[in-house]
């Protein structure tokens, strides 16, 4: 097997780290650490985008790396940190049911993701096409995280992690979406997080807790 060029190896390393972080987030019980993991995932994303940008000389990708750095590594984690301090859930620990089972489901999802991504990466002409499977896997893992969590804050982090996975999919398969679309997505994520933030306070005010089992009253009877 011929050895890959250094940039491809770096991108593959980043992709592997992303997958590892996705699993770490899936099983992390402390909300504070979860936010830090999310920031770290954003940082790895920035690194991989920079490597892709450098190796393909796509100037637009530098811009999107910059946006990601500002938004997902600095601003959103800062907002989330402030939020959990203001809401006083900084040291909260979630009781997760059955971590091993969740991990196993996660592994199944990864295999499924690779199967799903194979036909797509065959037609993608980018140097990063092999990482598309990992991108799909991290989307699905974030999705799993949203399903298994009981706290509003961690559901939102799951949502943002899913967005990270989508961003990674876009960069790895196509060197990024057109700039105007990427800006729009960034704006939506930003506004969305702020709305979530406002929302937390409303939930807290009404239920005196951020546990979403309070939010399961509306059902078909």
């Amino acid at each position: 097997m011929p050895s890959l060029p250094l940039t491809s190896q770096l991108i593959n390393l980043c992709a592997a780290l992303l997958l590892l972080l996705a699993f770490a987030m899936l099983t992390q019980r402390r909300i504070l650490s979860l936010i830090n993991l999310f920031a770290l995932q954003g940082f790895v994303l920035v690194l991989s985008t920079l490597v892709v940008a450098y190796s393909t000389r796509q100037t637009e990708l530098y811009v999107s790396a910059l946006i990601t750095l500002a938004l997902k590594v600095l601003f959103l984690p800062w907002v989330l940190h402030r939020l959990i301090r203001a809401l006083n859930v900084r040291w909260d620990v979630e009781t997760l049911i059955n971590i091993p089972a969740t991990m196993l489901i996660g592994i199944v999802l990864v295999i499924f993701a690779f199967n799903l991504a194979t036909p797509i990466s065959q037609i993608a002409g980018t140097i990063t096409k092999s990482t598309l499977g990992i991108a799909t896997a991290s989307i699905l893992l974030a999705f799993l995280m949203m399903i298994t969590r009981r706290k509003a804050v961690s559901q939102v982090i799951g949502f943002l992690a899913m967005e990270n996975g989508l961003f990674f999919a876009a960069t790895s398969a196509t060197y990024g979406m057109p700039m105007v679309v990427e800006l729009g997505i960034a704006l939506d994520v930003l506004v969305g997080t702020l709305v979530f933030g406002v929302f937390f306070f409303h939930i807290r005010e009404t239920f005196e807790s951020l546990d979403i089992h309070h939010l399961e009253k509306l059902k078909e009877r």
Binding site: F199, T206, F207, I212, H214, L215
Partner: peptide, 10 residues
Amino acid sequence: RTPASLEAAW
């Protein structure tokens, strides 16, 4: 801002 409306919005 009723409990039910917050749940619906969430």
